[in-house]
Amino acid sequence: MRYAMAIDTKKCVGCGDCVVACQTENNVPHGYCRDWIVESVEGTYPNLDLEFRSERCNHCDNAPCVRCCPTGASHIAEGGIVLVTHNECIGCGACIESCPYDARYPHPDGYVDKCTFCIHRVEKGQNPACVDVCPTKCLHFGDLDDPNSEVSLALKDRKWKVLAPEAGTKPQLYFLT
């Protein structure tokens, strides 16, 4: 099993529903976020290329945060989901320094927090909150090992990219372009 997410940059309008849904679902403290939206503009007027990306933890296959964690609080759970065990985390910040995507933040309670792919929902067979709430249905979540999962089907016919592949992290967020 290998959970992954495909984000359709052609469908995303940057409304921010996924961010609000995540903050509500996961009780993310005020001023912080586990997912966010990047508006990327390339070119010079009038030849501009606009891209919206809903970003979050990439749940990397070769996760530098897990490698750098001195206590083992950061670990890879079933399905490749990268998680932090709160009462094993000492808040040293090594994982924050090691993440090329700046996907982690220090929770005001001390431990380091990040996107969990809403594992508490996924375990019940539901989608992550951000996926369910997306009004343009541009987020696709599922198991890459299952050829009929929503994410596998989304990746099958489309061109995609991952962020900073040169970092060698083998990220599992796929951006459909």
Partner: peptide
């Protein structure tokens, strides 16, 4: 002082993780 979850610092000494220089 720099740790943000100070009371759990002892977790450092419950394991040795060779991939982590901090450990």
């Amino acid at each position: 002082w720099d740790l943000k979850h100070k009371l759990y610092f002892w977790q450092l000494y419950t394991t040795i993780r060779f991939t982590s220089p901090m450990s």
